[in-house]
């Protein structure tokens, strides 16, 4: 019974997250202005012109790609001490707001 519940929960979550990733209008709590504000923290290192070396450009990144990368740092699946620390304090609203803003910025 319990395993069935977990199974269906995962299916529902997957469907839900796929929907979120497919459509940035559905990004929960995403706010463009908040994303722009939060991005101030990113551009200290991520060159806004995309000409930096050693640190990738993040503006123009698709929302699904950005969210996947940030979550990989958050779960420490992806390795980089600075990015793990950055991701650590970003909640869902913040991640989605950043994803929205960065996806719409060159």
């Amino acid at each position: 019974m319990k395993s069935k519940f977990v199974f269906f929960s995962i299916i529902i979550l997957l469907l839900f997250s796929n929907k979120i990733l497919a459509d940035d209008k559905a990004l929960a709590g995403a706010d463009f202005e908040y994303g722009q504000h939060l991005s101030g923290e990113c551009v200290t290192c991520h060159n806004s012109t995309g000409l930096g070396q050693g640190i990738p450009k993040i503006t123009g990144m698709k929302t699904a790609v950005f969210i996947k990368k940030i979550l990989a740092y958050k779960t420490k699946e992806k390795d980089n001490a600075v990015m793990q620390m950055v991701a650590d304090r970003l909640g869902e609203e913040e991640i989605n707001s950043l994803a929205l803003y960065l996806s719409k910025t060159k």
């Binding site: 551009v43 200290t44 290192c45 991520h46 060159n47 806004s48 012109t49 000409l51 930096g52 070396q53 050693g54 640190i55 980089n80 600075v82």
Partner: peptide, 18 residues
């Protein structure tokens, strides 16, 4: 880590001056 610092320098100076 060194290469990251090069990227940071490029990032922060661009953030400050452009």
């Amino acid at each position: 880590t060194y290469e990251e610092s090069i990227g940071w320098y490029s990032g922060i100076t661009s953030d400050m001056f452009s």
